[in-house]
Design a protein around this nucleic acid. Structure first.
Lengths: 337, 337
DNA sequence: GTGAAAGCGCTAACAC
DNA sequence: GTGTTAGCGCTTTCAC
């Protein structure tokens, strides 16, 4: 059976409170007493019962992280960053995946799936502003590329600027017809900011932002990128560059180009988003926007904990860093990886 | 403030117990009473406090899943499978990553990091048999390719057989010098079973199992596979086939072959392990052993819960299915993906 | 079928 | 500095 504070107290011949003091590193305990109690703790193999502590304190020590999918390495790496950042504050992370589906995201945001959490970090895809109006009581922090006008902290890179940088890079290389792969059908448009960046930069360069070169997709995986690329080509379009919503889609698109005998970057240059490890090891390495995942994770955790501690200022947008990593899919083979 | 059972009881003019009965769907409650209480529950927006319930029942409703890393999509997909399987039983999953480091794995196995869990599913890399002798009290289920002689449930595919199938496939294609990439230095040898399969199948085919073609690595990512491949080639070896410990390593190796102008599969055929999505979208799609991740996740969860429920039989090994998916990296371009 | 009361293990007042 | 005690919100005997 499990040993409790009481057992330790009896074993050490002291009161429960004293044991509690030792366990919680309370200041005013004499070293002698501390050691005596510690000995009993070790002898009995006492481990605090968190459920009881939580009941008492009203805190669980758990924050939830809800991501669209784990299979995308970007989110996997982000999850690792959040888990590590939380661990530094003695918090543990409960991971959930929404599949990027609105109903799931709503459920998660209302604390349905994980009802034992102190706070929630959510990366929404389809969630709409109105879904967040009436929420459960735990602090919520948003991460990712959607743009919401709501009183929650939101950690993200500047998606418009990053997209502009990517398109600028392509234009600087002399490309004139830049396709965008990965806009979304329907009213929910997660890629909105990146499409906007694409449009703004083309316009700024005096180039037409040809909406016929914007390929919508249902999902955001390799296969969706491949399908979108195929559709574009089948429609008779032959852009000289492709900017994809994310790396998996860019890689899917490159596979199609390869199958059709089109060379990357000679015929078509490709830029992705997220800088996933996979992009560094293909036959053609992938140029990509690289968000500082570690910072996003760290900032998100800090944000939740600040709100939990009541020390948080007004809800705010926090910008994480990013940089454009140029590789073979735009520069060609010469430069080393 | 949070509403409790007591509040609901007062509001409905009944006792706490009656409300509890309704909340827990206890059988013997008159429909009239049930509805009256339900109305109060709805009116007050009552939601049960899980911490209290857990304290009382001694269960938390949480199981932990400890994986070497999330970045590897194989583990990410496995995590998704476990999360879904657990959700079907109203369990939530706490995800942890060990980095495949022994100390971390020991800590996790002793329930150090997550002390709120009812059970644990662990995928060990470096963990040794002796590390598991003295453990915390929650049920433990092992998954993955390590082989332990210990009284815990262990869910895995037949790694030796799968490796033999992979090598057999290469031999059937006429390959005679099959390298193995991803053995491990040091005493801990996670790849052990796969190396054994490699050795057995070569021997069975009357071919030499040339240990000089076994490349050891420190990690198991793309870069490790690339480095191992480079080393092999730099040492003057020119196998006509490579069997890699996992897909990322296989892809890393293919990148090196590509850089050196060696063709896959004409010059060197490549087989990976895990059937990660990435392998289906490279310039050369990757032949790979495809474990039934969904089954592994489902079986692991079922196993933990059975042990929790006390309905579990003797600790046992459970074999999940797998199949060899043949693609361009062994068959060449002709067959469709 | 429903109510009263004990207690899960812990923390935090408050006494001493 | 250490002990006593109440009570977090719930489930669960056991009466009624």
């Amino acid at each position: 059976m499990r040993v409790s504070l009481k057992d330790v107290a009896a074993h050490a011949g002291v009161s429960i409170k004293t044991v509690s003091n030792v366990v919680n590193n309370y200041q005013h305990v004499t070293p002698a007493m501390r050691e005596r109690v510690q000995r009993s703790i070790d002898a009995l193999g006492y481990r605090p019962n968190l459920a009881a502590r939580h009941l008492r304190k009203g805190r669980t020590g758990i924050i939830a992280l809800a991501l669209p999918e784990l299979g995308n390495p970007y989110f996997a790496e982000l999850a690792a960053a959040v888990i590590d950042a939380a661990a530094e504050h003695d918090y543990i992370v409960l991971l959930d995946h929404t599949g990027g589906r609105r109903e799931q995201e709503i459920l998660v945001s209302q604390g349905f799936r994980a009802r034992v959490i102190d706070g929630l970090i959510l990366s929404p895809i389809e969630l709409e502003t109105e879904d967040l109006r009436d929420r459960a009581d735990v602090p919520l922090v948003l991460i990712g590329e959607r743009d919401y006008d709501l009183p929650y902290d939101h950690i993200a890179i500047d998606n418009v600027a990053a997209a502009r940088d990517a398109v600028r890079h392509l234009i600087d290389l002399g490309r004139r017809e830049v396709a965008f792969i990965g806009a979304r059908r329907g009213r929910s448009e997660p890629a909105q900011l990146r499409v906007r960046g694409w449009r703004e930069e083309l316009t700024a360069a005096g180039l037409p932002a040809d909406e016929g070169l914007v390929a919508a997709t249902d999902g955001w995986g390799h296969a969706d990128g491949a399908a979108a690329m195929s559709r574009l080509l089948d429609a008779g379009r032959r852009p000289d560059a492709v900017f994809a919503y994310n790396d998996p889609m860019a890689i899917g698109a490159m596979r199609v180009l390869h199958e059709r005998g089109l060379r990357v970057p000679e015929d078509i240059a490709v830029v992705g988003f997220d800088d996933v490890i996979e992009g560094r090891f293909g036959a053609v390495t992938l140029t990509s926007v690289s968000p500082d995942k570690e910072a996003i994770g760290r900032l998100a955790v800090a944000s939740v904990l600040a709100r939990l501690g009541g020390t948080a200022p007004e809800p705010r947008r926090v910008r994480a860093d990013y940089r454009l990593v140029e590789r073979e899919s735009t520069l060609g083979r010469r430069p080393a990886r």
